[in-house]
Design a binder for these strands. Structure first.
Lengths: 211, 211
DNA sequence: CCAAGTGATATGTATTAATAGATCACGTCT
DNA sequence: AGACGTGATCTATTAATACATATCACTTGG
């Protein structure tokens, strides 16, 4: 929306306010990305928005289009909503309560990064693609709930198992990885997270798919 | 966000979903505009977005920029929010409860339109700008809560008083208008709107300013 | 040291919203 | 009938996002 044309640009306050909106949304997107322990390149892969663009969005207050905002939001498990002004405090309160899940521990983020790297290596090997796909899916899930992981030891164990995946022992070692990832997830499922206000169990994990 | 470039356009589902977002927001904007009894030209005046553009937005799924969306939303007393997916049902519930105020009666809409027209006429007269400003502000408010007005008779009375505003009797007649508008608002303040779920009294009017 | 990851920056091009009006087709009112 | 309001449509131009890459400066780990 251009306000710099020959029309009267008298209301600078209004103009600043419009830019403010894009910046406020960018701040939200950035903090959510960081909260989930994602790099800009991770988010780029998920959302389809180029990393360079994400960088500019986060730093330069780009006046995004809805489709781009939606892509980024969805990659971060957020939705765009139009909320009556009077309801804004209540909505913020709800969002905050959902967001009370802890920040990703640095130790955990490191291990996840190492596993991510090793996953890439394993993809270059001749292993059963079916099993690999299952493991990849489990790993994607793990990245989603990495902020719930408190003990990096299990991640260390998964990383070790991943390093054992060679051509000769490919499928068996990979299945070991899958088992350990499933174990990690199952342990986390039994964590009882009850935010002080609703909704209850905002981050309850579904027991839907398995390797 | 273009998905029609040389890159793989494999995920049609994803693309459709992105367009869906713009359309869903347009639907929300349109229904809120109608709920408030505003024409596209009214909204254009308030938001600074051209009427022709609003028409296209409402009918053609334009991929708006945030600044344009914000301008339209603010003109309709809405805010853009990024909400965790898990919180979406709760947020919708809040928005709905705030939105339970009734639709504008056609009779009421007509009277408001007549008053709006007469307000324009009065602006061309030599009347006390200070008083006129106060009345204009009251009228703006009235447009905001016109969906709460059940009895058009008071509006008729206000319109009659407005027609009495001539050069010779300008300030006194105009003050009569102000008094009647204030009376209408005060009557409405005592309407007790309690949605079945929170927040209570979403549309409670503040007793802040007077003529 | 080198390799890899991260976010920021730059370049050049394509796309489409946004702008500024004007006008059309239709409905309503006097 | 004419006047007015409403939403849709049109034209021509501009602005800025979006895209696709590449690269830079810095940090970290082996």
């Amino acid at each position: 929306m251009y306000k710099s044309r020959s029309t009267v640009v008298g209301d600078l306050k209004g103009q600043i306010k419009l830019n403010y909106e894009a910046e406020a949304l960018a701040v939200t997107l950035k903090s959510e990305r960081e909260r989930q322990g994602l790099s800009q390149r991770d988010l780029s892969t998920r959302s389809g928005v180029p990393q360079s663009h994400i960088s500019k969005i986060e730093t330069a207050g780009v006046d995004l289009r809805i489709s781009s905002l939606a892509a980024l939001a969805h990659a971060l498990d957020l939705e765009i909503a139009l909320v009556p002004r009077k309801a804004v405090p209540a909505v913020q309160s709800i969002s905050r309560s959902v967001d009370t899940a802890p920040i990703v521990l640095p130790e955990v983020a490191k291990h996840i990064a190492s596993i991510s790297k090793q996953m890439s290596n394993v993809k270059g090997l001749s292993v059963d693609p079916h099993v690999l796909q299952g493991v990849q899916r489990q790993f994607n899930d793990m990245q989603q709930y990495q902020n719930l992981i408190r003990d990096p030891a299990m991640l260390s164990s998964i990383y070790d198992a991943l390093k054992e995946v060679k051509n000769v022992d490919g499928v068996d070692a990979l299945k070991q990885v899958a088992i350990q990832m499933a174990r990690l997830r199952n342990d986390l499922v039994h964590l009882d997270i009850k935010p002080k206000s609703f909704p209850r169990r905002a981050y309850q994990l579904d027991g839907d798919d398995d390797a």
